[in-house]
Computed example of a mutant assay.
Amino acid sequence: MCDVNAGFLAFHRIAAQMLLLASFRGKDGHQKMKRAEAVAFGGSGLDRAAHLRGEKHVLDTLMRDSRAGVLPLWRGKPLLVADPRSGRDELGWLSGNSLALVGATSRVFLGLDGDAPRFAADVSAWQPDLLPDTLDAYRDPSEQRHPALPDTYRFSELRMAVPRLAPRAAELAATARAVLNWHRTHRFCAACGAESDISLGGWQRLCPACGTHHHPRTDPVVIMLVTRGNSVLIGRSPGWPEGMYSLLAGYVEPGETIEAAVRRETLEEAGIKIGHVAYLASQPWPFPASLMIGCHAEATSEAITVDPAELEDAIWVTREEMARIHAGAHPRIAAAREGAIARFLLGNWLADTLD
């Protein structure tokens, strides 16, 4: 990288860090970050450098930087490599000329991780020798290894890998998965039907026929910690793994507030009426592209009426029983998936740390 670009990035990084710190400092000058921001896939403070997305010559220069890395994703699975020292997984960053990126599509500029420019690319055109039956299933334990990479590198399902990822790695992988999936499913202009082109570093699609601009979508989903006295409401959807229960959740509809969505979804799915609703935390959930909005909802009724089209079962669980579930000691009910906001909210409810 030339000295001019290096100096520009250094200035940008310092300015971004100052803004980030200022946003998290209270009147006493001490850094303040809510515990809720520690939820998986969020809160790492990634510098997305959005102002660089339209500077194609700058992005081309950043791609050639020796510190740059490209994260390949195969059918939504990020490339991972085990770190034997920490016991964690690391993201499998590759140089832009890696043979594993041959035929890659939809390259996206993710931002700046300190001094390192970060990109992502879809390599789903590559076909491994064997496609497992579990591919695209709710839980896919299979891993794929590319012949151009060392055997320690493998493509792995992000939902299963997130507990082993550091916060910054999880945020980068989630962003890459969501945006690349959007490109895969939104190739054609919704206004005129023509195939659109990638622009703005992967954060926009531009229709060459009618000029319409399209941007990645995120679907808001409310997820409810519904309590009544010493109990919490949990349910399971049809097709979930045996014993798996979680908090109730549903999409926010057009023209609806978060509070209204919480009340409507809980009533529709379980027949429970809701009074007070309070926001707790949010989580990007790139399966495929949702923002989970965690809320605490106080139930004003107790009798459960399950909608079988939405839920297979719903039950009230006491705090003491939930502690056993959370510890993996319950004979019938399994804890919510590690890394999911449901587990995060239930854990903080048990610890009385919902701040």
Rank of each mutant, 00 (worst) to 15 (best):
M1Y: 02
C2W: 14
N5K: 09
F11H: 08
A16M: 11
A22S: 11
D28I: 12
F41I: 03
G43A: 10
G45L: 07
L46W: 01
L46V: 07
A49W: 03
A50K: 14
H51P: 00
R53W: 10
E55Y: 06
D65G: 04
R67C: 06
L73N: 01
R75E: 13
G76N: 00
P78E: 03
L80D: 03
V81W: 05
S86W: 09
S86V: 05
G87R: 09
G87W: 03
L94A: 03
L94F: 11
A100N: 04
V102F: 12
G103S: 12
T105H: 03
S106T: 02
P117W: 06
S124R: 01
Q127F: 04
D133V: 15
L135S: 11
L135E: 10
R139N: 14
P141T: 07
S142Q: 07
P150Q: 12
S156M: 11
E157T: 08
R159V: 14
V162M: 03
A169L: 09
A178E: 00
V179H: 01
W182N: 01
R184N: 03
R184W: 01
G193W: 05
E195W: 02
G211T: 11
H214I: 02
M224G: 06
V232N: 07
G235A: 07
P241S: 10
E242Q: 13
S246Q: 11
A249S: 04
T257H: 09
I258C: 08
A260E: 13
E268H: 13
E268D: 08
G275W: 14
H276M: 11
V277L: 08
A281R: 06
P284M: 04
P284N: 10
S290F: 10
T300N: 06
D307E: 13
P308K: 10
E312T: 11
W316E: 13
W316K: 04
H326V: 02
A329E: 08
R332N: 03
I333G: 07
R337E: 14
I341W: 00
L346K: 04
G347S: 08
L350R: 01
